[in-house]
């Protein structure tokens, strides 16, 4: 069977369905006019959107002001700002362990250091990769794809791949063993595990940012470089005076996008370390998840309060991004 015959066979029932749908819609159009049809086309998306995004956004505030372990709002009692007060009650504000909700502040601290290190190292690695990919390379699209590969992998797969490599009988120990080192259980060491979560998430996400930066580099007019070469400008100077200033808008967008993503880190870390050992890789999203759902002492109100605080950070970052994005007329999202 030819391809067109196959696709027409496939489309026949779909087309028939569309014709059946058409008759009542013509009547609707006659009754409500063109503007009614606009509403009709918009309705399904906005309805789903309203129920599953806008409504939760609003009732999250109500949630954060109620107590108890029940999930239905009607079964929850109003407690005012108690959940927030609980999050912020500390003996010494410089020591997370002195707080009533020490897990929250541990998660905040971990997330802070994670975001700082992951974003700065990842942007640096992405920038270097983009600069290299922007050279006159043979098979550039192949090399670009190489760095993009992990971006498509699911976070669970990423976590499992690295759990397998970092375990005692894993590839890393094998490589080090070739140089005479003893096998080591990397994922039972607090510092190494923390470093591993940073490294793994850089590995998994840097391809995306490399692509965006590469697009920015390729948009820089070639004649600027030619003029610089004719003037005999040193390469380092060309980088600081031409490349970096012209890439700055893209760089800003990429930094903010990476920040927004890093604040929400969860999936791959949860699979790789489960937040451990101890609480050394417990990040904010996992704290919210465990407080809201997983732990025996679940407290949805507290989780909602924590998620609102996290949302505030994201709002600030988003506004920053919209401002930056407008100035550079770039469209970054999700």
């Amino acid at each position: 069977m030819t391809k067109t015959a196959f696709s027409s066979l496939l489309m026949t029932p779909v087309n028939a369905l569309m014709r059946i749908v058409d008759a009542p819609l013509r009547r609707l159009q006659k009754a409500t006019g063109i503007s009614g049809m606009a509403a009709f086309f918009l309705a399904p998306n906005m309805l789903i959107f309203g129920i599953f995004v806008l409504l939760p956004l609003v009732i999250n505030f109500v949630y954060s002001m109620t107590g108890g372990t029940a999930f239905f709002l009607s079964e929850r009692s109003f407690v005012g700002g108690e959940q927030y007060a609980r999050l912020f009650s500390c003996v010494d504000y410089l020591d997370p362990m002195s707080c009533q909700e020490d897990a929250f502040w541990t998660a905040v601290g971990n997330t802070f250091w994670f975001v700082l290190l992951q974003v700065s190292l990842m942007i640096l690695a992405s920038l270097v990769t983009a600069l290299i990919l922007n050279r006159d390379l043979v098979a550039r699209s192949f090399w670009r794809a190489v760095f993009f590969f992990p971006v498509l992998l699911s976070p669970v797969v990423v976590g499992l791949i690295w759990k397998w490599i970092l375990q005692r009988q894993g590839l890393l120990n094998y490589i080090l063993y070739q140089f005479g080192a003893e096998p080591y259980s990397w994922l039972t060491d607090r510092t190494w595990t923390f470093a591993a979560t940073i490294g793994v998430s850089i590995w998994a996400h840097m391809g995306l940012y490399t692509l965006i930066l590469l697009a920015g580099l390729q948009a820089i007019p070639k004649d600027l470089y030619e003029a610089a070469e004719m003037d005999g400008t040193r390469p380092a100077r060309v980088f600081w005076r031409i490349t970096l200033p012209l890439l700055a808008p893209n760089l800003l967008v990429v930094v903010v996008l990476a920040l927004i993503k890093a604040v929400q880190v969860f999936d791959e870390v949860y699979v790789l370390t489960g937040g451990g050992p101890g609480t050394s890789t417990l990040y904010l999203t996992q704290y919210i998840y465990e407080t809201g759902f997983a732990s025996a002492l679940r407290n949805p109100g507290l989780a909602a309060a924590a998620s609102i605080l996290m949302g505030l950070v994201l709002v600030v970052l988003t506004l920053l991004q919209l401002g930056v994005g407008r100035r550079s007329e770039n469209k970054g999202k999700r």
Binding site: F49, L54, L57
Partner: peptide, 24 residues
Amino acid sequence: LIILATLMVPLSVIMVPLYSIIST
């Protein structure tokens, strides 16, 4: 505008109330 503004509403911020809506 509403669609664009909520571009950045991540799951981690709304998971508790979303869960209650799904249960309801």
